[in-house]
Design a protein around this nucleic acid. Structure first.
Lengths: 271, 271
DNA sequence: AATCGAGTTCCATATATCGGAATCTATAAA
DNA sequence: TTTATAGATTCCGATATATGGAACTCGATT
C-alpha cells in the first residue's frame, strides 16, 4: 500500500502530505477536520474519509488522546489546543522569521502600510509574520494563513525565483480559481507575468486575491536552508495607487535583499 | 508496552500525552523538538529520546514528510510550517473563542487594559485570544502560549471551579517553580488561595508569574463542552494598582458570566 | 416491541514499525 | 594519501501494532 521509496525534495514541496504510513493517515484525518468550517461528527468524517469505521474511530481516539483533536459533549470533533501550543513554539523559535523581523519593521516604517513575510510551502504561501499599520481589523488570523501562490504578491515573487523544473512541476498541479476578476486563470498568463517579475525583481498583486487589496512583493531566498519566501507591502486600493506601489518597489527589494544577507550571516552559510 | 485500556477523561486532562501508540510516539518526538530553544541535530534528539537510532530516524523522516517538521540543509530539525497552518484553522474556527470575542472587546473598552482568554489544558493555561491596549510590544506570540496554572490569574480562576477530585489530581502533579518572589510554591498555599477565589468569584495575579505584571481573572465554564477557562484583565504594576484591579473585578466576573450564557445559547445546551 | 441510526468495541489477520547492525559520508588526524 | 572518527542513513527479519468487518450498545422513533 505504501510506496516503497524515499520522498524526494520535489515530492515534499509538491504534495503536502502523502497520507501514507500510520502517521500520514492520522494527519490526513486531522486535515479533514481542519478543512471543515464547523466541528464534525463521526459519521460526517467517515463519509469524507475513505477509512473503514473501526479504523477511523481508533484514529480519532488517538488524535484526541494526543490533544490534536478535541471532542465536545456533543460528540463533535474540533482541532485541539495542543496545535496552538505547538504553533506558538513554531512561530516564536523560527530563525528565519526572527532574522527577518527587524527588516519587516523597518520596511513598515518606510511605507506606513502592512508588511507581510510569507513562505512557500507546497502549493501555498503561509504567512509567517506581519507588521500592521494600525490594528484596524483583527488580523491575528493572518499568521499561519495559507493563500494560493498564483494570486498573491508574495506567492508570485516566490515563484519567480524557483528553478524552471520545480516551477513547472508546481504550476502543472494548480487548479486556478477566480477569487476576483483579476485572478490569473491559466498557467500561461501566470508564467508570462512571472517572466516580467523575474526581470524587474518584484511582483504586484493587482487586486487578484481580494478586491480592493493591492501589494508589491519581492522574493527572499535562503537556498541553503531550503527556504523560498517573499516580503510584501500591502494596502487598500483606495489609499494606495499602483504608482505608490511602484515607488515602494525599490524599498521592498532592498528589504528582501537585506534579509537574505542577514540570514547568510546569522544562520551561517550552510553545508 | 501500550497500556490496554481506554483513557478516561481524567487521564486526558491530566497527562497531556501518553506517548503510546505509533502516533503518540511520533508526537512525543515532535514535542522534543518543540521544547528545544534551537533546531536540533539527529544525534541531539537521539540523546533526548529513548528511541533506538533506526526507529527515531524513521519517525523524523515521517514527520518531515508530513510537514510537521522541517530539516534544513544543516541537518537540523525545526517545527514545520504545517503546524502554523493547522493552528491558524484551530484559532479561526474555534467556536468558544468566536463566541467569547465580543465580550473580550467589551471588557477591553471598559478597562483600557489587555484582556486575555485562556483555556485549561492539562497542567497549563493556553491563551486562546487576547485584546491588546496598544501594540506596544509584539505579543502575537501570546496566542497559543502555555503558562503554568498555579501562577496566572486565569489559571487560578479556572482551578477554582474544578471538581475537588480533579483539582487534587492535578495539583498533586505540579512541580512548583518560583517565577517571581510571589509565586506559590506549595499545594497548600495554592489551595488556601483557591478557597478565597471560590468565595469571591475572581482571582488575582499579584506579580506571581512575571514581575511588574498584575491581573484580575474570573472563571468561565462550559461543562457540556468540556471547557474550563478564564478571562482576565492584565496591566503593568506601575500603572495598575491592586485597588484598580479590585474595581474591575465586577466587570470581569460579569464578562465571564456573559460568555457562559452566550456559549449556552449559541452552541446549544449540549447532550 | 421492533426498527433505525449513530457510536463504540472486538479480535483474527495483515502490515507497518521496531531496532540492532551494516553502510555511507564527511571531516579530521596521522 | 591513508586512516580514524563521528554522525547520518539504510537494511531486513522479528514483532508489536494497526487494520477492518462484524457484532454490540444505546437512544430515539414508529
Amino acid at each position: 500500500m505504501v510506496e516503497n521509496r524515499i520522498a524526494t525534495e520535489t515530492d515534499l514541496k509538491a504534495s503536502q502530505s502523502a497520507g501514507t504510513g500510520t502517521l500520514g493517515k492520522s494527519i490526513a484525518v486531522l486535515e479533514l477536520v481542519a478543512t471543515s468550517e464547523t466541528p464534525l461528527r463521526f459519521t460526517e468524517i467517515l463519509a469524507l474519509s475513505d477509512q473503514p469505521r473501526g479504523t477511523l474511530h481508533r484514529q480519532l481516539s488517538h488524535l484526541v488522546e494526543e490533544g490534536l483533536l478535541s471532542m465536545g459533549g456533543d460528540l463533535r470533533y474540533a482541532l485541539g489546543m495542543r496545535l496552538l501550543k505547538l504553533a506558538s513554539n513554531t512561530w516564536a523559535k523560527n530563525q528565519f522569521r526572527t532574522v527577518a523581523e527587524p527588516h519587516l519593521k523597518n520596511l513598515h516604517e518606510q511605507t506606513g502600510e502592512t508588511v507581510h513575510l510569507g513562505i512557500l510551502h507546497g502549493q501555498e504561501i503561509i504567512y509567517l509574520d506581519k507588521v500592521e499599520s494600525r490594528q484596524a481589523v483583527r488580523m491575528n488570523s493572518q499568521i499561519g494563513n495559507a493563500s494560493p501562490v498564483y494570486c498573491t504578491g508574495v506567492g508570485k515573487a516566490a515563484l519567480s525565483v524557483l528553478p524552471e523544473a520545480r516551477l513547472i512541476d508546481l504550476v502543472d498541479r494548480f487548479s486556478f480559481q477566480a477569487y476576483t476578476p483579476n485572478t490569473h486563470l491559466s498557467a500561461g498568463s501566470l508564467l508570462t507575468e512571472l517572466a516580467v517579475v523575474r526581470r524587474v525583481g518584484h511582483a504586484f498583486d493587482r487586486e487578484e486575491h481580494e478586491s480592493g487589496i493591492r501589494c508589491v512583493a519581492a522574493p527572499v531566498q535562503a537556498p541553503r536552508h531550503g527556504i523560498v519566501a517573499g516580503v510584501s507591502v500591502t494596502g487598500p486600493a483606495y489609499r494606495v495607487s499602483m504608482e505608490q506601489l511602484e515607488g515602494w518597489a525599490v524599498a521592498v527589494r532592498k528589504a528582501a535583499h537585506e534579509i537574505e544577507q542577514d540570514v547568510e550571516v546569522r544562520l551561517g552559510p550552510g553545508p
